[in-house]
Design a protein around this nucleic acid. Structure first.
Lengths: 139, 139
DNA sequence: TATAGAACCTGTAGTAACTATAGGTTCAAG
DNA sequence: CTTGAACCTATAGTTACTACAGGTTCTATA
């Protein structure tokens, strides 16, 4: 038997998050309630490490907790197929692309503003940045 | 005198946010407490519309409330210069660029995953996306 | 083995920037 | 004058954690 056991601290370090985050994931049902020691300390094993790593990496990729619950359902329950996961990843990819587009518009808006504002010794009354912030909307 | 008055609902619509958001901005001191009617309804005028538009547009551009407070200080108080505003905009622009870079890494990670996963009828056990989510970190 | 202090426990409150709801009052149109 | 839309205040909820406080357990060293 592979007997390696992990304290919550080791688990957290192993998968790159804080102890409080593990507590939180347990409370919201992302992580299972693990066995305890006599004294009440949580005892984890390798599958827990894998699961938490999965969760953290998915978060880094921008998946929301609810989406991760869905992904974990695919894994926890039998009779699911790769295609479902693939679809979620594709949808996530296009959501990310949209965010990128938004930010790029925003970035050039800011750059335009900075370029327009050549004379830094202008008083605020003539500042083109302030002016442009008073106009309506990001295109 | 330009006498146009605005109810909170008109103000909100004019500058593209919700009534509750105006309440919120008043509570945190971004918007001033306006005069009231006999009955206690808030009464706004054009400068309020401009100020709120400024705030909303700055938010769209990714400025945090605390940064907007600083920007408004520049405007509310005399003796400030364009240069200070310009510096904030430049800093904001580079923060936005960083976010874009992050998201682009994320996007290609997701795309790679999707591409690797050719056979959608794979069972979950063989799904390359699930596999890659079990590995360590976004590069 | 005694003990110090690191790590753990639970529970609650705080974060950012709103959004939503409840329960009541005022305004404006017909 | 009535009706219902819009307003009022105050509080709770949202997301995904983070940060306490106040107490208990575990473990390494003397």
């Amino acid at each position: 038997m592979n007997g390696k056991k992990y304290s919550i601290g080791q688990l957290a370090k192993e998968s790159g998050c804080k102890v409080e985050t593990v507590h939180y994931y347990e409370k919201i049902g992302l992580m299972p309630e693990p066995p305890r020691t006599e004294g009440g300390h949580r005892v984890y094993a390798l599958p827990h490490v894998k699961r938490l790593t999965f969760i953290r990496r998915s978060r880094e990729l921008g998946f929301k907790i609810e989406q991760i619950k869905d992904l974990l359902k695919f894994i926890d329950e039998p009779n699911h197929y790769c295609g479902e996961v693939r679809a979620m990843a594709m949808q996530q990819a296009s959501a990310v692309q949209e965010k990128i587009n938004d930010l790029q518009r925003l970035h050039s808006a800011l750059n335009d503003m900075v370029i327009q504002c050549k004379d830094s010794n202008n008083s605020i009354d003539n500042c083109p940045i302030v002016d442009s912030l008073f106009t309506k909307k990001v295109a």
